[in-house]
Computed example of a mutant assay.
Amino acid sequence: MNPLAKVLDTLADRTLVPGYSKIGYELRKRHWQPLPEGALRGKRALVTGANSGLGKATAARLAELGATVHLVVRDLGRGEQAREEIATLLPKAELHVDRCDLSDYDSVRRFAEGFLAAHDTVDILVHNAGALPPKRTENAWGDELALAVHVLGPFLLTGLLLPGLRASEDARVVFVSSGGMYAQKLYDGDPQYREGKYGGTAAYARTKRMQVVLAGMWAEHLAGDGISVHSMHPGWAATPGVTDSLPGFAKLMGPLLRDAEQGADTTVWLAASAEGGRTSGRFWHDRTARPEHYVPWTKESAAQRERLWEFCKDRVQNS
């Protein structure tokens, strides 16, 4: 990308609407190199929340690049429907549907145990599953639902799958976050959102901030294991998560929203490109590393990061 293009890219990113909408995607993709055909041949990929939206688009593109893809879903019926839709477009793809409810830690343990009993290696793990609760809800372990789905379930799953990730020659872990996290600081003192008036959108954004922090910490912890860990945000995409949970926003943005394939592009690029294996611990949007903070009052300290890590360890070990 030439210097002028970099300046325009940064300007679009900071002004949100040009950068997060399909406008930014269309402008930036002109500078991208296509991923090689068969780039993921022989790789095994897991995508959580793969029955619709970004997850299904990610699963389809990974399969198109040659990966064996596991659609890791809460609802097997919807997962099988997604598998059939992908298979119609990619009849030679190797696709599997596996049940795992990230808000149910017993379900996470059963899935991980069964998966590692059947397969030695995990090459790609995409944490895509999401939840935007309309009111504060807890799972069976007393954890707020968005926290369980976005943070604690993925933390547990990543830890349980480490033997498979370590067995890979070039493992990649990608957390699908959100640009909404820029508006939130790290609430390490109240991760369960018990204080103040609960809001689903705020809970979503808070836990997406936690994902970015934890991705960086996983990258540090796994630096010697040959496992690259990334977080990214897809921009504003017309997926069920947006159109169902934020109908007013979806109506306002209308034709400016990206489609699911555009939103999934950076996740796939991080999983399949050489760059995705050379770097670790960074936050990405449209194939470019972005700042984790745009304003000083959202920055967390090293002590806060450690408290979040220890909180997650304690919750999953005692669940």
Rank of each mutant, 00 (worst) to 15 (best):
T121Y: 07
G142D: 05
H119V: 03
P133Q: 12
L145W: 02
L147I: 05
L132P: 00
P134Q: 14
A148P: 04
L145H: 10
P133F: 10
D123T: 11
P134I: 02
E144H: 05
E144W: 01
D123V: 08
T121L: 01
A146Y: 06
P133I: 12
G130N: 09
A146W: 03
N139I: 00
N128E: 08
E144C: 08
V122S: 01
A146N: 07
T137C: 08
D123F: 05
H127Q: 15
R136S: 02
G130Y: 07
L132V: 14
H127I: 10
A140T: 14
R136D: 03
G130Q: 11
A140Y: 07
P133S: 12
E144Q: 14
D120K: 03
A148K: 13
A131M: 03
H119Q: 09
R136V: 00
A148H: 12
V126F: 09
T137N: 08
V126T: 04
H119F: 02
L132N: 08
A131S: 13
E144S: 11
D143E: 15
G142W: 12
T137A: 12
V126R: 00
H119L: 01
W141K: 07
K135Y: 14
D143P: 00
I124N: 02
N128M: 09
N128Q: 11
H119C: 01
H127M: 12
D143V: 05
W141A: 15
D143W: 04
A148E: 07
K135M: 06
A140H: 11
A148Y: 06
K135I: 02
L132W: 10
D143H: 14
T137P: 06
R136Y: 01
G142V: 08
L145M: 13
H119A: 00
T137S: 13
A129Q: 02
E138K: 14
V126G: 00
L132F: 09
D143L: 09
V126D: 01
A146V: 04
N128D: 13
P134F: 04
H127W: 01
L125I: 07
D143Y: 05
D123E: 08
W141L: 09
V126L: 09
H127K: 06
A131H: 09
T137Y: 07
W141R: 11
P133R: 12
A146K: 10
D123P: 11
T121K: 13
T121H: 07
A148R: 12
A148C: 09
G130T: 13
K135L: 03
P134C: 04
P134N: 13
D123M: 04
A146F: 05
N128F: 10
A146G: 10
L125V: 05
N128V: 12
E138T: 08
R136F: 00
V126M: 09
R136T: 01
A129K: 00
E138N: 09
E138D: 13
G130P: 07
